[in-house]
Amino acid sequence: MLLRVADHLYWMGRYIERAENTARAVEAIYPAAPKGSLSTDREWEGLLALTGRRKDFLAKHGPPSPAKILRFVLFDLENPSSLLASLRAARENGRSVSATLSPEMWESLNALWLDLQEVDEGRLLSGGVLPFIDRFKEGAHLFRGVLHSTLAEEEVFRLIDLGTFLERADHIVRILRARHSSLLREGERETHYYSWVAILRSVGALGAYRRVYHDLISPGRVAELLILREEVPCSLHACLDRINDLLRPLAGGIGPEVVRLAADLHFLLHDGRIKEILRNALHEYLIDFTAALQRLGEEIDKGLRISTCA
């Protein structure tokens, strides 16, 4: 497989996952969280912080409001991490490898983009965006299904999945960082319960939590589930398991340094104890993890872009 094609496949996987993550993050707080002591405006601003584009938003739109934030994170094509912009980037990457994809794969991705880019965002913003998010999720699931039922080449899966799981890990760390303070308030159920739920919903892990613990939601377990429990697909541990497996056969193309970095990260999770992590400052742990993930991403980029063979 061409290195350039590998690069596009990997980024296609990342952007699709990024759009899905945005969809989940919006769903988690939409409609705004039930009344309580939570400030709903803070929820919305948390969504903004999550995308890492708070400064861009303020410069463009001034003081935030829920409607403005929704428009920004879902529809604004000038915001490179909005759902639509991510989908467009996935489609552009897909177009560049449409000779490698099955025609059905390319068509399902292209059709999803065509379908969603012509929605009437004004109507959605006043009437509710969940139908839009549902349409997107259905399309994204269809795309993944088509990928698995029409493709023969193992390498294509690997690269798309590599992008998917790296992006997912990045998203999980972002969510945990954005809400880490609530995770340290074990006794303050009244105040922080909905924040814990929002964390789980933002990564699609509420059901997984119930299946694993069969018990009340507690912040220590939320952290444990999302960081260390490898049996659920929405944990950092599970993501790094997959990334490790995916990278090993690709090492010849991407370079051995990448494999080493991923193995280090995996080792950290494999040997982690949640009590220690929480005792020794969760926030610092997450910051270090973010940096390590970023380094891994950069090494993958380097491996796929800078050719080692000429």
């Binding site: 061409l2 290195l3 193309g253 063979c309 000429a310």
Partner: peptide, 8 residues
């Protein structure tokens, strides 16, 4: 040659 994952 073309640049591929498997080398040139």
């Amino acid at each position: 040659y073309m640049r591929t994952m498997e080398g040139p």
